Amino acid sequence: MQYRSLFCVRGRDNGPRFALISALAYLILLLGFIFIGASSALIIIGLFLTPLLGLSGLRRMRDAARPAWLLGLSFIPLLFFVLSLVYGDSLSFSASCVVFATLITGFLAMQRSASKNSHYHQGYSGPAAMTAGGKGRKRVEPTLDGSAAPVGGHISDNMSEQVEEPESYEETGRGFDGISLEQWSSWAKQNRRLLLASVGGLSCMILIAGVWSLFSGAAGDEDVAQEPEVSAPQIIVKRDEVKLPDGFSLILEHDLLVMRWLGETEEPGTIWSLATAQGDKTCAHLIFNNGTRYRPVTVEQMPDTGIEARFSPLDTESIISDIARRGSVKLCGYDFSLKGSQSALAKSGSFIPYL
């Protein structure tokens, strides 16, 4: 294998060599995906293979006397193939890239060589081609005066001259099924619009199908991820509410006491939390006019602009008793009058046991 010829800029590549190098590039990427998975290392491998494919395409275009910009077509499917392996989850999109690359590679490989006298060694013709030749040593003949005189010529190690001619590979000028490339070229020139329309339409269909499958697969995954989970049935807590004269209410949720009143329009959230001691410090204590204090567990701003202060069940009886007997109470900067609160509480059967 002529490894130096892979990096040659001035040589020529025939069609089979270019097709083989292109196929090996995709095969190496596929093997890398199998062994290392969808890793960013595939991008590094792709960056290494891109100049090899580009140089081979450049030599192929020189051999076919075609404009060099045509080799850019071979980079498009390679780029999408690498991205589909690293970031994509759609196998059909990767397969579409391979099919698209096969069409482009076949089109470039079938271009007829413009040189009639080029000799190809393993599909390559250029300055990096290896020539095989025996390196011998000079034969020395004895003379009458005892001195040695060199005699022109070379002999090899086995005492015979061997000259190996470099193996050459010439374009046969034959295409598929024995049809000459000239006939293919003539047909393509006569039906250029039909050929371009067919190739372009097929390529667009492949790309659209690949992109569609990529996005449809992602949408399907989102639908699966967004399927509603079966949650446990919520326990409905009975709330017994008593509205007091000064615009606030007392609510019993079993043994838990909630004090509720309408506040200002603010975003719903926690105003005060006893667990973290964070929030509005004026909500840290419920203070009666006789100085009795109770700590609310949480004070929350509700979506309906209401404010609810929840207390420990251990303080429920004491708080209800003080509300029925005291004159006023303060919480979160609000001062509530307790006038008429005892009669309001006595009308509720849930609060009577606490009076």
Rank of each mutant, 00 (worst) to 15 (best):
T172Q: 13
R17Q: 13
E141R: 15
E229G: 06
P142M: 07
K339Q: 14
A19P: 03
K281C: 02
R10Y: 13
S118M: 03
A65C: 09
A68I: 10
L55Y: 10
A309K: 00
Q162P: 02
D240F: 11
D63S: 15
S249W: 03
Q278Y: 04
S186F: 12
Y120P: 06
L355W: 07
A149P: 00
C283K: 00
I271T: 11
E141G: 00
K339R: 14
Y294C: 02
F33E: 01
M110S: 15
E227P: 01
G133S: 11
L338W: 03
E222K: 12
A95D: 01
F81K: 00
S118T: 13
S328E: 07
D145P: 01
I104R: 02
N289D: 14
S147K: 09
K116G: 11
G217E: 04
E165D: 12
I251P: 02
I307K: 06
R59A: 07
W184P: 08
A188P: 02
V140P: 04
M1D: 11
L73H: 01
F18I: 06
G269V: 05
E300M: 11
G173H: 06
L103R: 01
V99W: 01
G306W: 06
M159K: 10
A209F: 11
R174K: 14
A275N: 09
K189H: 13
D246W: 07
Q234I: 11
Y354R: 02
V151S: 08
S198V: 08
G134I: 00
L274P: 00
P233S: 12
L83G: 10
R174E: 10
A218K: 09
D177G: 07
A344V: 03
L55I: 05
A41H: 06
E241Q: 12
E227S: 15
G269T: 06
L70V: 03
F288N: 04
S147V: 07
G291I: 01
I28R: 00
V258S: 13
I44Y: 14
A344F: 04
P16C: 07
L338F: 12
E267I: 04
L47G: 10
R260Q: 12
E267S: 15
E253A: 12
A149T: 14
E300W: 04
F288W: 10
A19V: 05
S203H: 02
H154Y: 09
Y120V: 05
T102Y: 07
V151Y: 06
T172E: 14
C204L: 14
A188W: 03
F18P: 03
L331S: 11
L71F: 09
Q278T: 09
D177I: 10
E264C: 01
R12D: 09
L91I: 09
F81Y: 15
D304P: 08
A149E: 10
S39H: 10
I155C: 03
F351G: 02
